[in-house]
Design a binder for these strands. Structure first.
Lengths: 365, 365
DNA sequence: CTGAAAGCGCTTACAG
DNA sequence: CTGAAAGCGCTTACAG
């Protein structure tokens, strides 16, 4: 217990080291930044004096201002960071990003623009970064505007293109469509859909056609469209398919959604989701209500996170290369920082992975 | 394909906006920072001019230098960030940290000091942060020195105390000991241990007593000591217990370690690990070699990450409150930043969670 | 309500 | 090899 002991004394500055030693500030600066500009002996004396005075080396803020670079890239989410960390897909993405920043000696500054009362554009305007990666923000989000306004290099992930900004993503609609076609092909006709948020300030509950049409998260919108296309194709009216929206992309919410869907008449025999996180919750709901997956209920995830293969039963899902998405986003941003050529748009491949959570409907003959 | 279009034109500065409008720079600054210092009308004109000139608002680097604050806290790992992200325990910790930084409008700057050729202290000296959280760094790591040298508020997690620095952690030794006592109590006498790295530049393979003694990661050292204490207590010589060190804390390495341990004579009937990540790999190795857990092999994890409960069979492990650890570290750092009182040391409670991966040895009578 | 002045801590040509 | 000068872009008392 006690007041922090380190916050006390002023730190010494470069100027003070120079004064103490009787040399010019530039000489001290050179000792740190350009060893070839002074004798080894003098350099050692500089360091020695710095040590004695408690000078911690050039202040990064001052150096950054002078050199016009922050040494970090910002990754912006519009959810709370704790939700982002809870989703393995996002963590894998971050892994990819960090592989490239690490190599470059850049830090990764995690920024949260969680929608809510105190959504402060300061998050963006105050971020000490050299560029931004925007991760699945909603169309028209003011924080995206703010980021664009900073006039720094930007890479946008899982969002529609804005002007000439670089983008990285997958073809969500056709990936979702292929997943739905798989289930349709098995003979299913009674569907339920569990989607993550459709727009900032997402709510929990059935989303009618109007709300679906108003979806501003591009990923949510595209996946629903893909599902709708495959289902409509086979003569089922999309208006009859209940779509349950979950405010957060966590298994718990998927479970609650499924409990609601299963209590409907007719009871869905196949549930399509927009993430494995949600699908894991669907599995849990089935377990709790004594339904066997896939015999009584087919379940389809999206993402193919490692947990999907380990689930009981293993999840049929859409695989997408999360780490690579992060790598590409990172590399693209880096290229921009260096004024190099960049490749864009980058649409990564996906594929349907059929595992044990889907089969033909029970009453199918 | 093309050169980044955003990197072109110079950004306007506050000074230019002021000049364009014919007011003093301080007035423009006030428009952004102290709305009460000028009329609403003038303020609007300032913003309008800023928009017209493409002025993105005060530069965070310059503002930070002037105000003497960076607006971010640094979290330092000595592994590659991608390994950190791979371990749910570390992600949960980060979740906790980010909950408090988020509330404060601070960013989280992830810093990697992965041991290796080009281990650059610049990672520390160049980090634009207001304080550091050091996560399980090795004793005597030069980066720790460097961080201390910055003379910023610091919280150290899962490390021994250094001087008067604030610390957060658990009692690793007694937690490990209780886990080993559980297995010993079941009647086990033939053990194997799978540990994560003992020192920077960790290697894969059996670690003899000498190497164990030289361990500089406090967590690794303490957990081994706890295991040793319980095992020695029951008359088994610790020198006879093979300890396999894994360079990375990933299931894959745990599997490889276990394959090596299982090929030894006598074959271990119980394997103690220093993490669930590693224990998950032990399970996989057992599966591959046709051994049934727990019938043929008892397995103990450490951490109680969510995956532990979901594993087949569910892992017996030591629970520790990862999110709370992050919360406490974050809160302590924040308190220091505000020059408030801090509580230290903070040792969080742990508890042994007995699940399905441990039972009495097969030949026990 | 507005502006002139000083300065946050450093780096970078440039001249010697 | 060393140093004087200018300036990175801003904010903060302070005087009016």
């Amino acid at each position: 217990m006690g007041v922090n002991p380190r916050s006390g004394g002023r730190r010494a500055t470069l100027r003070e080291v120079a004064a103490e030693l009787g040399v010019a500030p530039s000489t001290v600066s050179n000792a740190y930044n350009r060893p070839d500009q002074l004798s080894a002996a003098l350099r050692e004396r500089v360091f020695e004096t710095a040590r004695r005075l408690g000078y911690p080396g050039p202040d990064p803020l001052a150096r950054g201002l002078r050199r016009r670079r922050a040494g970090a890239v910002g990754v912006l989410y519009d959810t709370r960071l704790s939700y982002a960390f809870a989703d393995p897909a996002e963590v894998l993405f971050l892994q990819g990003v960090s592989m490239v920043t690490e190599e470059e000696g850049l830090g990764v500054l995690l920024l949260s623009g969680a929608p809510g009362e105190e959504r402060d554009p300061e998050v963006i305007s105050g971020a000490v970064v050299d560029g931004f990666i925007l991760y699945s923000m909603a169309d028209g989000d003011p924080l995206v505007e703010a980021a664009l306004g900073r006039r720094l290099p930007i890479v946008i992930v899982d969002q529609p293109r804005i002007g000439d900004v670089q983008i990285v993503g997958i073809d969500d609609e056709s990936a979702a469509r292929s997943a739905a076609e798989h289930v349709v092909g098995l003979g299913h006709r009674r569907f339920g859909v569990v989607t993550f948020g459709l727009a900032p300030g997402a709510r929990d509950g059935i989303a009618d056609l109007e709300r679906q049409a108003a979806a501003t998260y591009r990923v949510s919108r595209s996946r629903l469209q893909g599902y709708a296309a495959a289902i409509t194709d086979v003569g089922v009216s999309w208006a009859d398919v209940p779509v349950y929206e979950c405010a957060e992309n966590v298994p718990e919410k998927g479970r609650i959604a499924t409990e609601a869907l299963l209590s409907r008449d007719p009871r869905p025999a196949a549930i399509l989701t927009s993430s494995d996180q949600l699908a894991l919750g669907v599995l849990e709901a089935a377990r709790r209500s004594g339904l066997s997956v896939p015999r009584d209920l087919s379940v389809v995830g999206f993402d193919d996170v490692p947990e999907a293969a380990r689930a009981t039963p293993p999840l049929t899902t859409v695989h997408q290369p999360h780490v690579e998405k992060g790598l590409l986003a990172g590399r693209n941003l880096l290229a921009q920082l260096r004024n190099e050529e960049t490749t864009d748009p980058t649409l990564l491949p996906t594929r349907l992975v059929v595992r044990g959570s889907t089969t033909r409907p029970r009453t199918h003959r």
